[in-house]
Design a protein around this nucleic acid. Structure first.
Lengths: 146, 146
DNA sequence: GTTGATTATTAGAATCATTCCAATTTCCTG
DNA sequence: CAGGAAATTGGAATGATTCTAATAATCAAC
């Protein structure tokens, strides 16, 4: 599992010339603590328990900062609110249509060469995003669970 | 190529107990005419040239109707406005980050079994969505071009 | 450690795609 | 034609996100 600890945050921020702040640390630790792909609003709710004075704008700012530091990825499903994911491994998402939960699916590196093969010549993909929709077995557990 | 003509529309609508209207036909023909994955707003602009009195709400309604008839698919990239696509073949999307254009990429059926294989037991995918990001060669042309 | 300059946070206003609403209008069916 | 269902319409409402301008925290040098 990606051993990206909250401690790593200060370093990453410094690398980008940014400061480590209580808000940023808390937002990041909330993402690490419960990897259920929360929305900004859900992060806001969780973070407020520890830091009641924080504002939603700050949560958005912190999330944006974490994304720009490449510590967190955004996940967009349909037109729903953006979700945030601290899993940096190459992975796909499985959107359970029954529960609404989103699970991470680890991807073997081999799949990427197979996918690249479907691109016509001249297409240079810098990234791929794979999203499944369907039903997940109740007991199913991968690298991320709710 | 999918030979879904505007004529097929009336039949599909009837199958769903819906009426064929000038607005619906025009919206659909606009999608067929230029397969560049337009947004609702872009469809609105194109449709107004022929039917100046049409309202944006109607365009949204028509698009929604076409989607519910399974004649058109929605494409969501990041948090950008929803785009509409009359290509019913299984296909991926390639989002050209330079031009902003979205191209269809035909998918060989084999890729689906490979993708299904990455799912842990218990996960039943009903659909997959694959989106590439990167640069497309200028001359690149697939089943859909701008 | 005070002074500035830079960077963060904040509350609330603004934006923008989309949906909702209530009021016509259109279209069948009898 | 009359009645009723289905569509369309303009405008208001929604909701996630971004912007703005003001305040607060932090850092670097003196």
């Amino acid at each position: 599992m990606s051993s990206t600890t909250p401690d790593a945050l200060a370093q990453r921020l410094a690398d980008s010339g940014l400061r480590s702040t209580p808000q940023r640390e808390l937002v990041y630790s909330v993402l690490l603590a419960k990897r259920d792909h929360p929305t900004a609003d859900q992060v806001f709710t969780r973070v407020k328990e520890e830091l009641p004075g924080i504002s939603l704008a700050t949560v958005y700012n912190c999330l944006e900062t974490l994304v720009s530091c490449r510590l967190v990825k955004q996940v967009n499903l349909e037109r729903e609110p953006t979700r945030y994911c601290p899993n940096l491994h190459p992975h796909a998402h499985f959107h359970d249509e029954i529960t609404g939960a989103t699970h991470d699916i680890d991807l073997p590196p081999a799949i990427f060469s197979k996918l690249r093969a479907v691109l016509p010549p001249g297409y240079a993909a810098q990234g791929v995003e794979i999203t499944f929709r369907g039903k997940a077995a109740a007991a199913a557990v991968t690298c991320s669970e709710e």
